[in-house]
């Protein structure tokens, strides 16, 4: 491998032989997401005079902040060769729990007691709900060897049903200015949701690159049996990863609810697909063991810019879905042809 090409974490085992031959003098495969994002921005700035404006770019950043949060969790799961289809529903439930507790509290008529929740309390309750649902996913997957696809598909339905039960099918609105600051406020000239996503990404990069559990995550995705034989508690790591993903879905749910000043029972529908798309476009292998958080951030940026561009160009929403699907397919094909998706 040439001196100037440093493999990203977990990349070593499968790409060592291919990267130099494919990349020649410039490591195109390594920077393909970045190049794609640059070309997309360039094309959109030519095609729409509204794209390259501060207000639009901040709008894009605000919009992708939610996807970045849930995609970071999804990346951790995909790195272990898993998948989580429930993030959209968990996001909706956590947003609804947060909003419901903040707005209505808990009434216990038999004790003539009303338990009110502060913004902090409601957020903690929402976060704990997401973590608990994520932990349940991990437990079901590891304890009963249920395929992640099936376990999280079941949770998708359960969480959506619980959201409908909690909200009665109606939005919960009017959550107060303090709570709205999370989704709509600015801090040091940057929108608060962007700050939140920066913190989430920084913590996740630290987790994957600098901690023991981060190395375990890559190892389990690379070869689960070998990891188990090496003494890694695979079940524990997986439960932790799914719990983190649930907690990050909750963060996304709180951000969405705050931004809209309303918890919508049908929030987060198809968010799991945008999240998986960001992970795949960002270069994380669906077979696990290889990928990076920063790659996922790039993937989320591409998806966000693409969504924004298609809206600015007045493309029909139906065609938008077609284009997004094709972009994801293209990303996987390019990934495979580079030997990354093996």
């Amino acid at each position: 491998m040439p001196q100037d090409i440093q493999p990203i974490a977990g990349e070593k085992q499968t790409t060592e032989g291919r990267l130099p031959a494919l990349q020649g003098r410039f490591p195109i495969a390594r920077f393909q997401s970045l190049i794609a994002l640059f070309l997309l921005c360039l094309a959109l700035s030519i095609m729409s005079d509204k794209f390259l404006t501060f207000s639009n770019l901040w709008n894009v950043m605000r919009q992708i902040s939610v996807n970045i949060c849930i995609s970071v969790g999804m990346t951790l799961i995909v790195l272990t060769a898993g998948i989580d289809l429930s993030v959209g529903s968990v996001l909706a439930l956590c947003g609804a729990i947060t909003a419901g507790l903040l707005k209505n509290g808990i009434e216990i008529p038999s004790q003539n007691l009303y338990i009110g929740f502060t913004v902090l309390g409601a957020i903690l309750a929402g976060g704990l709900t997401g973590s608990a649902l994520g932990a349940f996913n991990g437990w079901a997957i590891t304890r009963f060897s249920v395929p992640p696809f099936v376990a999280t598909l079941a949770m998708l339905t359960v969480a959506r049903g619980l959201t409908m039960l909690w909200t009665g099918g109606f939005p919960i609105s009017g959550l107060g200015d303090t709570f709205l600051f999370i989704g709509t406020g600015w801090f040091l000239g940057i929108p608060v949701p962007v700050w939140i996503s920066i913190v989430v990404v920084a913590l996740a990069v630290f987790l994957t690159d600098k901690t023991r559990i981060g190395r375990y995550i890559y190892a389990i995705g690379g070869n689960e049996s070998a990891s188990r034989l090496s003494g890694i508690n695979v079940s524990k790591v997986k439960i932790i990863v799914y719990t983190l993903a649930g907690a990050l879905a909750a963060v996304g749910g709180i951000m969405v609810t705050s931004r809209l000043d309303s918890a919508q029972p049908n929030a987060g529908i198809s968010y799991e697909l945008d999240s998986i798309a960001a992970v795949v476009i960002g270069g994380t292998s669906l077979s696990g063991g290889r990928g990076s958080i920063l790659g996922t951030v790039l993937g989320a940026l591409i998806i966000g810019v693409l969504n924004n561009g298609l809206v600015l160009l007045n493309v029909s929403p139906f065609w938008q879905q077609v284009v997004k699907g094709l972009v994801i397919l293209l990303a996987v094909i390019i990934d495979k042809s580079n030997g990354k998706g093996e």
Binding site: I108, N112, L113, Y114, I115, G116, F117, L120, G121
Partner: peptide
């Protein structure tokens, strides 16, 4: 500390 700053209690009929 978190619990103290998270919840408060009132009589339901007053609310």
């Amino acid at each position: 500390l978190l619990a103290y700053n998270s919840v408060y209690f009132k009589k339901l009929d007053e609310v």
